[in-house]
Amino acid sequence: MSKSHDSVPALRRAVRILDLVKSTERPPLAADIARQLELPRSTVHGLVAVMVELGLLEKTVTQGYRLGARLLDWAGGVTERRDLVTEFYQTLESFSDLAAFTVTLTVLEDTEVVYMACRNSATVLGASFRVGMRLPAIFTATGNAMLAEMDDNAFREWLTLHPASTWPEPLTPNGIRSVTTLVREIAEIRERGYAVDDEQIHDGLWCFGAGVKDHSGRMVAGVGLSLPQTELGRYDVSQLGRMAGALAQALSRRLGYRPVQAESV
Rank of each mutant, 00 (worst) to 15 (best):
V220T: 07
S4M: 15
G175E: 04
A122Y: 05
G245P: 01
V179N: 11
L105F: 08
E185A: 09
L20G: 07
V196E: 09
G55V: 04
L56W: 09
L225D: 02
R82W: 13
Q239A: 15
R35N: 02
P136I: 07
L84P: 00
L39A: 05
E263Q: 12
K3C: 09
G256C: 02
A122V: 10
T91A: 13
S23T: 09
R81W: 04
T230C: 10
Y257C: 02
Y235N: 12
L205M: 11
L225A: 05
L54A: 14
S178E: 14
D152L: 08
V52K: 04
V265Q: 11
E112M: 11
K3Q: 15
T140D: 08
V48Y: 01
E157I: 02
T91L: 07
R13P: 00
S165M: 07
L255A: 02
R41T: 01
Q36M: 02
V124N: 13
M150I: 01
K22L: 11
Y235A: 11
S128W: 07
L92I: 07
Q200L: 08
Y194N: 05
V21Q: 04
R254N: 05
R81V: 12
T160R: 15
W167E: 06
R253V: 07
I17T: 05
V103H: 08
S7W: 09
T181W: 03
E191M: 05
E93L: 15
G143Q: 10
S128M: 11
M146F: 06
L240G: 03
L72V: 12
P163E: 09
T172Y: 03
R190I: 02
S128H: 11
T140R: 04
V50K: 12
V15E: 12
A31S: 13
M150D: 03
L29Q: 10
T160S: 15
V15A: 14
D151S: 06
H215L: 07
S165Q: 11
F155V: 02
S121N: 08
A221I: 01
D73M: 12
V212Q: 03
L20T: 02
L232F: 14
L240A: 06
T160P: 00
L11P: 00
Q200F: 03
M146C: 08
T106A: 14
D197G: 06
G55Y: 04
I176R: 01
V48I: 04
R218C: 11
A99E: 15
T181F: 07
E109D: 15
V223F: 05
S23C: 04
M116N: 09
P168C: 10
T24V: 06
D19I: 08
V131Y: 05
L108E: 06
G211H: 06
E109V: 14
E38F: 00
A250W: 03
R258C: 10
M1T: 12
A14G: 13
R134W: 08
L37G: 03
R192T: 04
L20W: 02
R26F: 09
S178K: 09
G233F: 11
E80H: 12
S252W: 03
T24M: 10
L159N: 08
L161D: 12
K3N: 14
A30P: 00
P136Q: 08
A164S: 13
F88C: 10
V61I: 11
I17E: 04
M150S: 05
G224W: 01
A210I: 02
H5Q: 15
L161A: 14
A75I: 09
I33P: 00
R242M: 15
P27N: 08
L67P: 00
M150A: 08
T160H: 14
L72D: 15
